[in-house]
């Protein structure tokens, strides 16, 4: 009687263990979740984020290049302006000295009649 009861318990337990194992195997907990299982909107958003990031890197590179070129040109331009301003200041100082006519001792510049074709013409002002 006792042996029979024990066998019945053993069979029931074996059946329960069998079904539990089956359920666990059927669930395939070791398998990777598939892409199809992901929300497609989330996937699209992730792709867009990656694209925007790449574009921002490209834009930053272009801007940095353009700014370097601008800085170089600006430095050259400032040098040119400084050189011209210095030359203008020297010339203005020279003009102040040379523009005062002196009739008491006129020193007419060297001039003569030539046959070369004129580079410009003068007439009544």
């Amino acid at each position: 009687m006792t042996d029979r009861l024990a066998r019945i318990y053993a069979i029931v337990i074996a059946i329960v263990v069998f079904f539990l194992t089956w359920a666990v195997v059927a669930a395939r907990p070791w398998a990777e979740p598939t892409a199809a299982a992901k929300d497609p909107r989330l996937v699209a958003l992730e792709r867009r984020e990656a694209r925007v990031h790449r574009e921002s890197l490209r834009v930053r590179t272009v801007l940095e290049h353009r700014y370097r070129v601008y800085r170089v040109k600006l430095r050259e331009r400032k040098k040119q302006i400084a050189a011209i301003n210095a030359a203008n200041a020297r010339a203005a100082a020279a003009t102040t000295v040379t523009s005062t006519p002196s009739w008491s001792a006129p020193s007419a510049p060297s001039v003569g009649v030539v046959t070369a074709p004129p580079v410009t013409n003068t007439h009544t002002s």
Binding site: V111, V113, V114, P117, P118, V119
Partner: peptide, 17 residues
């Protein structure tokens, strides 16, 4: 610099240094 000057007979060119 050759510079043309108007005269009654035409143009006279002065060379101004």
């Amino acid at each position: 610099w050759p510079i043309g000057v108007e005269t009654s007979e035409g143009e006279l060119t002065l060379g101004l240094a």
